[in-house]
Amino acid sequence: MARAATTQRKALNTALAWLIGFLIFFPILWTILTSFKTEAQAIASPPIFLNFDWTLENYSVVQERSDYMRFLWNSIILAGGSTILGTMIAIPAAWSMAFVPSKRTKDILLWMLSTKMLPAVGVLYPIYLLFIQLGLLDSRAGLVIVLMLINLPIIVWMLYTYFREIPGEILEAARMDGATLKEEILYVLTPMAIPGIASTLLLNFILAWNEAFWTLNLTAVDAAPLTAFIASYSSPEGLFFAKLSAASTMAIAPILILGWFSQKQLVRGLTFGAVK
């Protein structure tokens, strides 16, 4: 691929790639556009693409109907809390697997991943009962723990793959230089793995943000995040396209913006560290 392609060929590639990119992006674009239309324009036939009367009315209606900020705050706490907690537990585990591998390391890792294949519905009711018993139902703390647990295998796996790229000699050098295990992880490993850790944090934040089984089934009011906020538009309000679009945009905007600003780490993270 090192050769310079002809300009003509490049133009053709560009056109095709932009067309496909646009098609893939279109549902999101269309949702954002529709959120600024009036309800009548939103269902106009034929559909209006750009020349409509831009309005912010839908946003204020959605905000009035349900307190957006509260859901947003819950989403941030749940996604952020579970990701940070998970990473704190995963870093030592990943250190062990990457730098002190044993015969069982791979088995443990695969076992961890396999816990993610356990169907959540299979254990929904027990968890539900436990949550009632422990008073965790509809609480942020309970959800943070659950989201942490379901993402923990992915976090461990990603960190493991990133850590493995770090030469063990550098950690041994730290040991020779008199660093304790804690200092070795804190001052040498973690700073060296910052790009990988950032990608891991980012991806798992997004996975937790978008998680829609436990967040829907274990929350009601107090701890409900944006997934629940948007699920309340299922029907029949879903027929109000403009308002649905406004609510959707509000639910996905924080992540889209986050993704926009941290593209590089994200692209790295999206591959789960598994492909170089």
Binding site: P167, E169, I170, E172, A173, A174, V188, P191, M192
Partner: peptide, 9 residues
């Protein structure tokens, strides 16, 4: 060390 093992950061 053979690879020098300097702390790159």
């Amino acid at each position: 060390f053979q690879s020098y093992a300097l702390y790159p950061h």
